[in-house]
Design a protein around this nucleic acid. Structure first.
Lengths: 202, 202
DNA sequence: GTCTATATTGTGATAGAC
DNA sequence: GTCTATCACAATATAGAC
């Protein structure tokens, strides 16, 4: 049984993900992460040197998992409406399993926007490809004229925002019943695609 | 010239709004707020007793300014499409002037959802009124069948999310040019209304 | 009401035994 | 590699003079 990472390192990373993603960089305590990993506090420094570096590992993990998703779908050759359907379905499914990640990323990119620069260039994201693809479809008359940036923003907004605002929405609509909220999110996979398609089809 | 609040108290509150809204409860430093207000650190405690209480004042201000906006429009008697147009226009205008507030509120309601309970009940928000109003319009055949919760979520998502994700979007689309991003947001007032109307009109 | 000085606690980080 | 003990400093909060 070869092990790529030491068991302890994995335990630390898992614990750090849980705590940092829920509480943010400043809100998290090293002691809390150690407790969650059921190891000693000083081991955190042995493996990751500093809080900053441990956080950085968690942030990279979260970003890598959520940002590139859209690119891959847009590289395929299917029709634009099918692409949107796919993106919405995949994204909401992913979010249902990682409910705290959106607000974590949003908060951290607002606090430390500089962290994004290196990550995005190294990830090789090229939004201009998507933009030109949408413009193409409009020219062909398959889509209502809409700025590509607005359309992309709309798709992401409709998928991500409800999870970022979950505590509020869950209370507004469902007396804080989590299952009811999740059911609504599941129903959104279909509803959001249809909503968007109706809005953009020529 | 009668003064409702002492000049110092106002200065502190203004400084606290600026710092807390940008950095969050844990990210903000009392010293920083004092510097911003150009007063001594201990005066913060003299006027507000603790960091927690000072933060609470800022949070209440932010919530009261952003949450009730929707209610008032829905109380009026105009057609649903006009209502949506009004809400979108007002909300995006408000957000353009308060760009840091969305992520501040979203982060804090995730960190401390309990803070919301008292605030929402005291604000007297009744989402069920809006829900029944939308259901009514669907029954009359003016709207495509859509769950009212999903429609409300869509409207709020399309308005608020871009501001919460501003650092990312500004870099993705505009090489970090703030004015270009703000111009896109201004254009969204019209584009988002039209997008929604096309998606829901029967 | 406003300041300086200080108390008190919390927290990231390190030293050193095993 | 893992632990205990401890350091160093940052940050909230308070005491007390003016």
């Amino acid at each position: 049984m070869t092990q790529i990472q030491s068991d302890t390192e994995t335990k630390i990373l898992d614990a750090a993900k849980k705590i940092f993603i829920q509480k943010g960089l400043e809100g998290a305590r090293m002691q809390e992460i150690a407790d969650e990993a059921k190891i000693n506090k000083s081991l955190l420094h042995y493996y990751f040197r500093s809080k900053e570096r441990l956080f950085s590992a968690v942030f990279k993990f979260a970003i890598s998992r959520f940002i590139p998703k859209i690119e891959r779908v847009f590289d395929s050759k299917i029709a634009i409406s099918a692409k949107i359907e796919l993106i919405v379905e995949q994204y909401i499914s992913l979010l249902l399993k990682n409910q705290f990640v959106p607000i974590f990323i949003l908060h951290e990119i607002n606090r430390h926007p500089d962290r994004l620069v290196e990550l995005m260039t190294s990830a090789g994201i090229k939004p201009k490809l998507i933009v030109s693809q949408i413009d193409e479809e409009i020219k062909k008359g398959n889509l209502k004229p809409i700025s590509a940036q607005n359309l992309i923003l709309n798709v992401i907004s409709l998928c991500v925002f409800p999870f970022a605002a979950r505590p509020l929405m869950q209370r507004l609509f469902f007396e804080n019943n989590r299952k009811a909220f999740n059911d609504l999110m599941a129903s959104r996979k279909k509803e959001v695609s249809e909503f968007i398609i109706r809005a953009i089809k020529a």
